[in-house]
Design a protein around this nucleic acid. Sequence first.
DNA 1: TTGGTAAATGGGATATTGTTTCATTTAATA
DNA 2: TATTAAATGAAACAATATCCCATTTACCAA
Lengths: 138, 138
Amino acid sequence: MEQLPNMRLTTQRQIILEELGKVTSHPTANEVYDMVRKRLPRIGLGTVYRNLELMADSGIILKLEVGGTQKRFDATVAPHYHVRCTFCGKVDDIDIEVQNKINQIAETASDYMILGHHIEFSGMCPRCSEEKKATSLH
Amino acid sequence: MEQLPNMRLTTQRQIILEELGKVTSHPTANEVYDMVRKRLPRIGLGTVYRNLELMADSGIILKLEVGGTQKRFDATVAPHYHVRCTFCGKVDDIDIEVQNKINQIAETASDYMILGHHIEFSGMCPRCSEEKKATSLH
DNA sequence: TTGGTAAATGGGATATTGTTTCATTTAATA
DNA sequence: TATTAAATGAAACAATATCCCATTTACCAA
């Protein structure tokens, strides 16, 4: 596992990273906890939070603070955008070109030092679209 | 106050909206609660949350679910972007042109029905820049 | 202008999400 | 393999948000 100096390679960390890598669903900390607990039933929720934060800080994974109240995590660290279903809260990737130039534009328009950006689309996922169609039929 | 049918014009609602309109700082629900309590000391926190959500749902105000764990609210409903200071959490407006065309691009690239988007820049606010400069001097 | 009525409130309980503490365990390494 | 600091598990705690329900209040019809 890629890591920072003084960061030990524990079983817990390995398995958290492995499980996160298996899914594309941008799980919350609690969802990761559930996934990991199937393999390490005695792991603590604190350990999961601690490690997700640590790995996000060191750039091994991505922390998403998107719509909804919960943080979500993503094993794909390359810059990319997301879409969030307004109805069920599901988060998926949006595979379009990253708009690097808007950082410059934003920097000019503000007194912040701009370090990056994230685009979050909102929409309706296929599943919710289906359900809505079904409901409106009667 | 602009409102939905069956939505009563209560003192609490008016004052919440007035206080939110006074600031450009995108306050959290708790910050709004503090502001409003100066004029209505007996208002409940639940009332503040309830009304902010209600007003956001009806489009009177904007609910921001940006970085950080808390929801933030904005009296300006016209589409615009935000920047969040990675160091202190402050949120400000970024006054650049809204990229309407990327909704189409995103819709083509996914199986969601795209309804909108929001861009959140991350950066360092002037205040934190100053502080960092001061710290690194000795 | 009042009286009826459903919406809204206050305040506390509860739920949800995330963080901290500390005694114990464990990975790294000398 | 003994040492030691980092990491863990478990539970307490903190922060944020929602719910419940008896009481109050805005609105409307007469």
